[in-house]
């Protein structure tokens, strides 16, 4: 079985890489398998985790026998979950063109919940916490930062502030404001370059993993 598995995995890996030559039936076959398997994976996973695990076991919990021989639920049934299931069902009505508009209700719920959640959490974690981490002390009694950290903290404070100035388009980028915005661009360019380099290296790492599989696990030429 292990042997077949290796051949299947190798066949699929090489099928994907065959796209480097050109679009071909082998690649398209592997792509179609990927789409079908991914869809099935999420279909099954969400059923067992959310529909069964969250809804079904929430409304109809498992039962057990207590000391007096009575059959009791292991947890209190939560009938409010039925509302969630109804909303979920309404979402699926999107597939029925005549009454598809009803799916706007669960969609409105999702949008409202996401908006409410993001409004608070993004402001708290991505604005307030980031501002707090940007304005760090440089010197002070009982504060022992190295020169490396002090320079780094100054770089972060200047870079964040000037970067934000660059994104402020309500005022024309002229004079001192324009100069600060230009410094902001420098920092943004370094960020994009570093992010690019980091992404390339992570993809390379995946590529090395696949090559290791092909030449090591499958062909047995290395390792």
């Amino acid at each position: 079985m292990e042997h077949i598995a290796l051949w299947v995995a190798a066949f699929l890996t090489l099928g994907i890489y065959s796209f480097l030559y050109k679009d071909n039936p082998w690649y398209k076959l592997c792509e179609a398998i990927f789409v079908g398997i991914s869809a099935g994976y999420w279909f099954v996973t969400l059923f067992w985790d959310n529909i069964y695990g969250k809804f079904w076991l929430g409304v109809f919990p498992d039962t057990t026998t207590n000391a007096t021989g009575e059959i009791v639920y292991v947890s209190t049934p939560d009938y409010w979950l039925i509302v969630g299931a109804v909303l979920g069902f309404l979402m699926l009505l999107r597939l029925v063109p005549k009454i598809g508009w009803i799916s706007r209700w669960p969609l409105a719920f999702i949008v409202g919940a996401t908006a409410g959640f993001y409004l608070i959490n993004y402001f708290s974690s991505n604005v307030m916490a980031q501002v707090q981490d940007t304005i760090m002390p440089l010197f002070g009694v009982g504060y022992n930062a190295s020169v490396y950290d002090i320079i780094g903290n100054v770089v972060i404070a200047v870079g964040t502030f000037t970067g934000l100035i660059y994104f402020f388009f309500s005022k024309e980028h002229k004079g001192a404001f324009g100069g600060a915005a230009r410094v902001g661009i420098f920092f943004l360019m370094i960020t994009f370059g570093a992010a690019f380099g980091y992404t390339v290296m992570s993809r390379m790492s995946l590529l090395i993993g696949r090559m290791d599989f092909i030449f090591g696990d499958w062909l047995g030429l290395i390792g």
Partner: peptide, 25 residues
Amino acid sequence: IMNFPQTAGQRAIMIGIALGIVSTS
């Protein structure tokens, strides 16, 4: 580079996006 200038630019982008998300929400 990753710890300081990259963090600074990333943070400026992050704060900008967050403010956009807050206002859109």
